[in-house]
Nucleic acid binder design. Structure first.
Lengths: 211, 211
DNA sequence: AATATTATTGGTCGGTCGGTCAATTCATTA
DNA sequence: TAATGAATTGACCGACCGACCAATAATATT
């Protein structure tokens, strides 16, 4: 009946992808609806199927594009420094800032973890698994290097040290809501910053009082 | 047309609740279906509505019953010890063991966080919020006490220290899948134990090499 | 034994889901 | 300007969703 003028193929595709990302971020894969995506993108449901094969293919394309951002992050973290303490600070800050600036990435990851393994097209999880594997492998290798150079304590397994690193960073952005419930007054940004300083201090030096 | 003999009211209710917990755990609230629950419980869909007002009410009842377990856990964590190092070990171990033994609780929490704030009946979130608030408040108070008694370093804000504590514990059980992808061979139980020892060590003493 | 109450069923409702298709409109080109 | 191809639409499909209801079978009460 009608055709919106001026939009190129890529513009429309991008609009659909942006709308879909919001919808998936808000509702997860199961909860998201093509109607909702169409509404956000101000086009009709049919057009989504013209540009993308299926809902699952759309979800897959979003996941892949989001994981591409990880490459830059890894390069930042893996950059080298002379001083181990300063290295830790830089790594924590880089990862933390990334999560802080990409809340939609974090929410998509959250949904992906929850829905992991439930896909009817298992090959779709391969890209995600490959990305995670690379991140974990690189992180473990890095910790091992630092141990061998005598900058990190050598009595702990590298992979569990790196797991602790990731936990401290990733979990905050979902837990902070619970902490905002008590003793309000502090802005989110301020709380973020103070949490970051705290985990750097704990990770570097521990929490026990020194005599 | 027919009625299954022998089942008391409570038995049927319990069967539905158990089936629903599995279904919600696997698919989240949006992804779960009453048909799936009925199938698991080996009854019909209609019977669910006879015993429970709605899908949402069923979900709510499961959440509440699961959060009741938290009370015992808190009492364990809040038990007192003379030595701070031993106290940390006991607290980490108690919380860790709880999550280890209640995987369905963890998965339900995961879905709840993802779907939080999206309920059409906001009052349903109140119980969850209240539980989380109590846990966080008690934890913060405990850290503050230990600081004042000189057992924990006093230069870090209690709430962020406690947030770090929770992050190290909760995040592992969702991240460990990614770590299982690399250097296999270690059983899940063994990896769990080694991770626990690692975070206790890190939290207590930090990761920097001591000269 | 007759009656009332409770537990359970099959069937059905309106609504939404993801997906398909033919028709239509715009942009390009001949 | 006419023809062609790509982009977009509305209408529609079968499947499933949560919910409801009348009928019925099992149990409890009298």
């Amino acid at each position: 009946m009608a055709r919106k003028p001026g939009n190129t193929r890529e513009e429309t595709r991008a609009a659909i992808l942006a709308a879909a990302e919001k919808e998936f971020e808000a509702n997860g894969f199961a909860g998201a609806s093509l109607s909702g995506i169409a509404e956000r993108a101000k086009i009709t449901k049919s057009l989504i199927h013209y540009h993308f094969k299926s809902k699952e293919a759309l979800w897959q394309e979003i996941k892949e594009s989001r994981f591409a951002d990880y490459a830059d992050l890894q390069r930042q973290i893996l950059a080298e420094y002379d001083d181990a303490r300063e290295f830790l600070r830089q790594s924590f800050t880089a990862y933390f800032t990334f999560l802080q600036r990409n809340p939609s990435f974090l929410r998509l990851m959250w949904w992906m973890q929850a829905e992991h393994g439930r896909s009817q097209h298992p090959q779709h999880d391969l890209v995600v698994s490959a990305s995670m594997r690379t991140l974990v492998e690189d992180g473990i290798r890095l910790v091992r290097d630092l141990q061998q150079r005598g900058q990190l304590r050598g009595d702990l397994a590298p992979r569990f040290m790196f797991a602790a690193f990731l936990s401290l960073l990733r979990h905050w952005f979902v837990a902070r809501r619970d902490f905002a419930l008590v003793e309000g007054g502090e802005s989110t940004a301020a709380a973020d910053q103070r949490y970051l300083e705290t985990i750097i201090a704990i990770f570097s030096d521990g929490v026990l009082a020194r005599p």
